[in-house]
Amino acid sequence: MDLPQIVKRRILRYENGVTEQREVEVVTEYALTVFVDGQEFVTLVCTPSDLEDLVIGFLASEGVLTSYEEIRSLTLSEEDGVAYVRLVTPVTIDPQMFGKRYIASCCGKGRQSFYFYQDAALAKPVEVAPVIAPRQIVSLIERMQRASDLFRTTGGVHNASLCTVDQVLLSRFDIGRHNALDKLYGYQIREKWTSDKLVIAFSGRISSEVLLKVAKMGIGIVLSKSAPTALALQIADDLQLTTVGFVRRGAFSVYTHPERVQLL
């Protein structure tokens, strides 16, 4: 079953004092409820593509699983909007654990980073990552943007790509920026891709939650055409992630761990 990712709609367009009717394409939203070992875990509002990878990546980022081999079965009912996951070792979902805030003092300097409990357990410092040149940074963001026909058509999705320093390996898109990353993470887990040579290219704002997802993937460099938040940069400092933002028109800003960027 191929779920529609766009619908056509008649609109009124006003521009330079002129109003006209047009037919445009609008991105769709899809609700997917995930059950783990018979327990309802979450409902994800997403773009209806790469749903299996979305489920796997989300569960991995939440600490429910760490490898593809831990899944006994994953069944999608696209018509009903439901995913059923059975694990080799069944788990009991503790609602007090998933979503509970954990306060960690970072680097012994008296600062505090705010993580979910599972983030504190899963997001570890990334010690091995490639070195990237300025021309490669600019090129990867440009290639990521060209990879999404849906964004060019609708303007309504976020884009994310798994890359080496020289090429884009895999691109995913979604109405939710976290979902786009989870789709990449799910594919990475299924295909057992190692992370030490990988880079994330991303279209959206680098929030603390986005940064933590990248850290959980074990990837040490994140590039974005948008801005980071202060908390994201604090976490990037602590977790040894290189954060590059505002990659636009041949320019960019390096916020954290610049030793991985060949600026000289």
Score class of each variant (00 low, 15 high):
1 M>H: 08
2 D>P: 14
6 I>A: 06
8 K>E: 15
10 R>E: 15
13 R>K: 13
14 Y>S: 09
15 E>W: 02
17 G>M: 10
22 R>H: 08
23 E>M: 14
26 V>R: 07
26 V>P: 06
28 T>L: 07
30 Y>L: 07
31 A>F: 09
31 A>Q: 14
33 T>E: 14
36 V>I: 15
39 Q>L: 04
40 E>L: 03
41 F>A: 13
45 V>I: 15
51 L>C: 01
52 E>A: 12
53 D>I: 06
56 I>N: 11
56 I>C: 10
61 S>Y: 00
62 E>D: 08
63 G>F: 01
68 Y>V: 04
71 I>V: 09
71 I>F: 03
72 R>F: 05
72 R>N: 14
80 D>C: 04
81 G>E: 01
82 V>P: 02
83 A>Y: 00
84 Y>C: 06
86 R>I: 06
86 R>K: 09
86 R>L: 05
88 V>F: 01
90 P>G: 12
92 T>I: 15
97 M>F: 12
99 G>H: 02
105 S>W: 06
106 C>P: 11
107 C>W: 09
109 K>A: 11
110 G>K: 04
111 R>D: 12
113 S>F: 10
113 S>E: 10
115 Y>D: 04
128 V>D: 13
129 A>N: 07
129 A>P: 10
130 P>V: 08
132 I>M: 09
133 A>W: 04
135 R>S: 13
138 V>R: 10
142 E>Y: 03
143 R>C: 06
149 D>P: 04
149 D>I: 08
152 R>S: 11
155 G>M: 09
158 H>F: 15
160 A>S: 15
166 D>W: 01
166 D>S: 07
166 D>L: 02
169 L>G: 02
171 S>T: 13
176 G>M: 03
179 N>T: 11
182 D>T: 11
184 L>G: 03
187 Y>Q: 13
191 E>I: 11
197 K>C: 07
200 I>Y: 05
201 A>L: 09
203 S>C: 03
209 E>Y: 13
211 L>T: 14
213 K>G: 12
214 V>A: 05
215 A>L: 04
216 K>D: 10
216 K>V: 06
217 M>D: 04
221 I>T: 01
223 L>M: 07
223 L>C: 03
224 S>T: 14
224 S>A: 10
224 S>V: 03
225 K>C: 07
228 P>T: 12
229 T>C: 08
230 A>R: 08
232 A>T: 02
234 Q>F: 01
234 Q>S: 13
235 I>E: 09
235 I>K: 15
239 L>P: 05
242 T>D: 00
242 T>C: 09
242 T>V: 06
244 V>H: 01
245 G>L: 06
250 G>M: 06
251 A>W: 02
251 A>Y: 10
256 T>A: 04
257 H>R: 15
264 L>E: 14
